[in-house]
Amino acid sequence: MECPNDHILLSSGLKGEEKSYIFRPRFNYSKCTKCSLCRDNCTENAIVMFKEGYPFLMPTLCSGCKTCQLACPSKAIEEDRKEIGLTYVTPVNNNLTLVTGVLKEGEERSYPLVLNTKRRADIMDFDLEIYDTSAGTGNHVAAALEDSEFALVVTEPTPLGIHDMKMIMHLLEKLNIKGYVILNRADLVNDEHIIPDYEIIGSIPLSDDIVQSYVRGKPVVDAFPESDASVELRRIMERVSELLW
């Protein structure tokens, strides 16, 4: 969402652009009775009211939750919308379609866009959906993971990587999704003990081929099919296929 790059590696560009919106309130001052319920119910503190005055919005703080509209007893809050980003549907080849969300610059909340992107993917009725999530464990990641058969958790065997991996595993437990680990840059290991007891289904070696393929804008398996990294990636793919079917 924040810096999508799958389309660069798949050399497909981005097609089928659609704007993505969230709700934002528009106050109809001819109906407003200044009761302040909209402000009092706004948990983001995005609505301000001065004495004797009408409410007004701090747009950067508004999350688009509609609570103000639902709380307004005089129907004085009308539906306006705010653009939060773009979604794309790009056919890569006969068997592969790429669905992408691009968050608007300066927009902090990516969750609503993940939801909209997922909806666009869902209506296409694919046989298999693969989600590339963003980093972290917030609800923007949970939304992407939800309803998955299983998750592949990619990490580096460094203290930082392991720390983040444990957080993701914790989230997967809450979602009741099984997580399998893929170690990237696996040769960084200098202490076997730091890797917790999860099922590891692949170990991708440190490889200049990966960096080179990235620079060329191609998946490493296409740019350097004979590379150690590509061999391991194909092996992982076979394992994933077994898990799926």
């Binding site: 688009g64 939750c65 509609k66 609570t67 609503p112 939801l115 609800n139």
Partner: peptide
């Protein structure tokens, strides 16, 4: 009303998905 889609129907009852919910209070209202 939940714009976050944080409420699902589980065994015929509404259930809050805590890992999605931000506590905005739309459901309460």
């Amino acid at each position: 009303v939940c714009t976050y889609e944080a409420v699902e129907n589980r065994n015929g009852l509404p259930h809050i998905k805590e890992y999605i919910c931000e506590g905005c209070g739309a459901c309460k209202v």
